[in-house]
């Protein structure tokens, strides 16, 4: 797969919401199955299963230390066999379960040594199926085989290039490069597959391109980078070079399940009618993860508002010759 030479960015409209409080509580992450079944990971340990049309397919998993249960789950992936991989920063393990909630296997143990984990959070497959994890409280990235065998590590506490302060989100793109949301350093770092530092962007703050505790990171086929800027209650999009593109503050409307609930509850209807400022309910609150599907839809785990907000990326890929060559400097010429 090659990336386009250029892009016409036509828009990135909000599509809809799925989930609601009680169904998708404290949404930490979302995984998208092959038939667009959505698996929404709750901080409580439960995993809601929803259709893209917001029909509830009954939850699986739950809270606890037993196999297939979770205490402080953070991130979730779905593999080619439709198994769910979940990190648990309290139990220091990666668990694999089926989409019916049956336990498959687990690996990981607490510690500071090679292959040991201390507060594991973000996880990502690479193109070969190996697994990179953000080993948060060891302030490093580790790479494991699909079976959990230690392969590689880099990092250490600090704010120099290649160091981390409580990394959270991690993403390996289709080329094998690794992006890390360096949570407490308020930046994103990019490495090659072996951990060689490539570049970083971001600083502390709330201006465009700045971060307040970035959580999830995602990269799409165009090379665009998406950051769940949790502390700033927004998602930011950067291009392949880390150049700021735009921000998403949240545009939520009521999901189908929300409408059903509200319409059957006269008191809630009245209280909503009395509420003087409904704008707040559109906005993200502490978004913690972003995932993309093969239709260029962006799913945002809106942790504080118990839902998933979905956007549609609209771009036209451009081949060489369809767009001018890059300019060496900005210009005020217009065409």
């Amino acid at each position: 797969m090659t990336r386009p030479y250029g892009l016409l960015r036509a828009g990135f409209p909000y599509v809809k919401c799925v989930g609601m409080r009680r169904v998708t509580n404290q949404s930490m992450d979302v995984a998208i199955g092959k038939d667009y079944t959505l698996y929404v990971l709750s901080r409580t340990g439960a995993i809601a299963r929803l259709t893209l049309d917001d029909d509830d397919l009954r939850p699986i998993a739950g809270g606890g230390e037993d196999d297939g249960k979770f205490v402080w789950p953070v991130a979730m992936l779905i593999d080619d066999d439709e198994n769910l991989w979940i990190s648990d920063e309290s139990l220091n393990r990666i668990s694999v379960i089926t989409t019916e909630g049956e336990f498959v296997r687990k690996w990981g143990e607490a510690g500071e040594g090679d292959g040991q984990l201390n507060g594991v959070s973000g996880i990502s497959f690479d193109p070969e199926g190996d697994v990179y994890v953000a080993d948060t409280l060891n302030h490093r990235v580790q790479k494991f085989t699909n079976e959990g065998k230690f392969l590689l590590k880099w990092g250490g506490l600090g704010d120099a290039e290649g160091q981390f302060n409580m990394p959270w989100g991690i993403k390996v793109d289709e080329l094998g490069d690794v992006y890390v949301a360096d949570w407490r350093n308020d930046r994103v770092q990019k490495f090659n597959a072996e951990g060689k530092f490539l570049f970083a962007f971001g600083s502390s703050g709330s201006e465009k391109g700045q971060f307040n505790r970035p959580a999830g990171v995602e990269v799409d086929a165009d090379g665009d980078i998406y950051i769940a800027d949790a502390g700033n209650d927004r998602v930011q999009q950067f291009n392949v070079d880390g150049l700021y593109m735009e921000q998403f503050l949240g545009d939520a409307t009521l999901s189908k399940s929300m409408r059903r609930y509200v319409l059957s509850n006269g008191r809630t209807l009245r209280l909503r009618e009395m509420a003087s400022d409904l704008e707040a309910q559109k906005r993200f609150r502490n978004p913690r993860s972003i995932r993309l599907d093969d239709q260029a839809r962006m799913y945002v785990a809106d942790f504080g508002s118990f839902r998933i907000q979905i956007y549609q990326k609209d771009v036209v890929p451009l081949a060489e010759g369809e767009i001018d060559v890059p300019l060496r400097a900005p210009t005020l010429f217009t065409t």
Binding site: M20, R21, R22, A252, L254, S255, S257, M258, Y261, V262, N265, R267, T268, L271, R272, M274, A275, S276, D277, L278, A280, Q281, R285, G304, S305, F306, R307
Partner: peptide
């Protein structure tokens, strides 16, 4: 106080 958005469906404000 101003009536807040109710708990359901997206949590407290």
């Amino acid at each position: 106080f101003e009536q807040p958005i109710p708990l359901y469906t997206t949590g407290l404000y």
